[in-house]
Design a protein around this nucleic acid. Structure first.
Length: 210
DNA sequence: TTATAGATTGCCT
DNA sequence: GGCAATCTATAAT
């Protein structure tokens, strides 16, 4: 889907109301944006995973609609944020039309704007201007890390409509060239572990793991 | 009511 | 590479 817009225009609901595998592929290269008052945080999406709903044992929506996973069954383009391992939040966006479950997990970003703020949110001291990849990788390479860097929590962000023009959290298209996409198995799951539903930008240095 | 696994991370050896 | 941390949804009792 052709989907160019001026900077900081949220992607529309149509973009998300499709199969999570399609949405995953097309999210690569797009930009996640957080408005923090006057500050702007942003990062290039370089790694995501698709979760398919009722037919995907690894998905939170596999056993049907519950209070927790209701967002995944609702309209597309809403955030699904959950707490995992007693320590971390994970950020997803709901896909498919209202009534059909599906989503995309954000696994890694390349930091763009607000690097100092991200480092502070992560509790990382950067000596001077952080420019080398090793430092930057600590900020948003991993689902728990990127959520922390962007201040994403369940209380603040779960079930938020990411397509609203006034949303403080959304994804935008800045006309980045179509990346070369690589598909692999998903990370850190035990059920349906062999399905190739992880999508990443081939060769990108900010993916969570090789 | 109690037990357990979990879409992770960071620190230890 | 191993493992503890620490919350919560869901399963088992």
């Amino acid at each position: 889907m052709r989907m160019e817009g001026k900077l900081s225009t949220p992607l529309p609901r149509d973009f998300y109301a499709r199969d999570p595998r399609i949405v995953s592929r097309e999210l690569l290269g797009k930009v996640l944006v957080r408005r923090e008052g006057k500050k702007l945080l942003s990062g290039r999406i370089v790694e995501v995973e698709a979760y398919l709903g009722l037919n995907d044992p690894a998905a939170h929506s596999a056993a049907g609609r519950t209070l927790r996973n209701a967002v995944l069954f609702g309209p597309a383009g809403h955030s699904y944020v959950y707490f995992i391992y007693g320590n971390h939040y994970c950020f997803n966006v709901s896909c498919l039309p209202d009534g059909e479950a599906g989503g995309v997990l954000f696994r890694a970003l390349e930091p763009l704007l607000g690097i100092k703020e991200m480092a502070r949110a992560r509790g990382i001291f950067l000596d001077g201007t952080p420019s080398n990849t090793r430092d930057l990788r600590q900020l948003t390479s991993g689902p728990g890390r990127l959520a922390e860097a962007f201040g994403i929590t369940r209380l603040r962000d779960n079930a938020k409509d990411l397509t609203r023009a006034d949303s403080d959290l959304f994804i935008t298209d800045d006309s980045y060239p179509s990346p070369r996409v690589r598909k692999t198995v998903r990370i850190g799951i035990t059920k349906a572990a062999k399905r190739p539903l992880r999508f990443l930008i081939a060769g990108n240095e900010f993916i969570s793991r090789a």
